[in-house]
Nucleic acid binder design. Structure first.
Ligand SMILES: [Mn+2]
Ligand SMILES: [Mn+2]
Ligand SMILES: [Mn+2]
Ligand SMILES: [Mn+2]
Lengths: 223, 223
DNA sequence: ATTTTTTTTTAGATTTGTCTAAATTTAAAT
DNA sequence: ATTTAAATTTAGACAAATCTAAAAAAAAAT
């Protein structure tokens, strides 16, 4: 029931790359983990021997129920620590990911359950991603792409799908974060740029690329 | 400037075994680290190559200034995390050591400095041991062995030199912890047992072995 | 001063996780 | 249907950290 940091990172990466019941390829994994395809193949054999994933040579890989369970515990730890770093220690949301990559491998179950309580059982991490509960159940958060938001409708940013430092830097520049309330004034046809309005601030425009990575929630009750 | 967990554990163990400028032997280190003497020799050669310690075959080992600096940073992290676990997450002081053994290897400097601030810059950990500051300077805490405490003098427990689970269990049983105020009523000559009095509690006796591992502070101003 | 015991080091293996280079399989293009 | 290209796996090597068994050095005992 105890796996190396390396194995935990593989399981987490596979989980993230695995949409629905699709299969994950060796090269994609190697890219995600900053390693070489040959190393991935080696590790897949070991994880298969531990029944954490299904794997047939050349045919890609998929987590078993056991593998998913482990992955979800790592994700739980990662996101709770991120919340701690931002909410309790005052870190910016763009600097916590790296540190959480280390903290997520601390093994004490009791520690993480108490941490959750201490934090007040938050439902999402600082990037808006849902935090699995201690059973590994991850709440599905209803979200709409910012690109699909009707004009002039106020909505709150609830998650960002790309969390690269470059992207988070840009969001910081615009002062956009999880919970920021905004609306789309108009769409410019020429380059698909969006004009954004935030209360008490001058309007500004953002690129389609940025918008495509922002997800929002808004009141859907019929007026 | 970044060392493996294993190397950090070696440096910390040597630091703890090294009184004043004395030399540490291979066997003592092996015992402390739950490893074999042959493994210790291997590692000492690597640490010497990194100039973290002075080592001549058969002649024992001693930390260099650099080695001490690294050891003190690990000790700082260990004790701050222990404080966090007890003070913020509500752990008992006897259950935090193991978890801190893992947390002490998290590398972010910024994390530990912010943690210290968040905790209010405590001067000692839950076991009464002093916490080195970010420069690695460790405050010396004036302490007296409980065995040397004059009879009927009230004193506060400030540290325990043996932190085995067995010992901490026993202290828990007696409801003795850091900060507990007590006095020694009398010493029994036959087995050197001490009779202890704590306000609002029946008196009880403790063994000489236990007493020899307890350190206290008391008012030394002349009456 | 030898002999015996203890401590420490060396020699040679092992495990885990990684890599490069070469071989193999699968997929795409002609 | 071949040929070419891309993806994946194998073969062999390496670094880190550990171990067992044997050799060597130092310390203790006679
Ligand atoms: Mn990680
Ligand atoms: Mn996150
Ligand atoms: Mn440790
Ligand atoms: Mn402690």
């Amino acid at each position: 029931m105890k796996y190396s940091s390396s194995k935990e990172n593989y399981l987490k990466a596979i989980f993230h790359l695995q949409q629905d019941d699709s299969v994950v390829n060796t090269n994609a994994l190697a890219r995600q983990l900053n390693t070489k395809p040959a190393s991935v193949t080696d590790m897949l054999k070991k994880l298969k021997a531990q029944k954490l994933l299904q794997y047939q040579p050349y045919k890609g890989v998929k987590l078993t129920a056991d593998g998913k369970k482990v992955a979800l515990q790592i994700i739980r730890k990662h996101r709770l620590w991120e919340y701690f770093l931002v909410d309790k220690l005052g870190f910016g949301w763009e600097e916590v990911h790296e540190i959480a990559e280390e903290l997520e491998h601390i093994s004490s179950r009791k520690l993480i359950d108490r941490l959750e309580l201490f934090l007040g059982s938050p439902r999402t991490d600082p990037h808006g991603d849902p935090i699995p509960d201690s059973q590994g159940k991850m709440p599905v958060i209803q979200q709409t792409a910012l690109l699909d938001l009707p004009l002039k409708k106020t909505a709150a940013v609830i998650s960002v799908s790309n969390q690269s430092t470059a992207m988070l830097d840009l969001l910081k520049h615009y002062h956009i974060g999880i919970g920021t309330k905004l609306q789309v004034n108009r769409r410019f046809e020429f380059d698909q740029t969006l004009e954004i309005a935030i209360a008490n601030r001058p309007v500004f425009t953002i690129s389609e690329l940025l918008a495509s990575n922002l997800f929002v929630a808004y009141d859907t009750t019929t007026a």
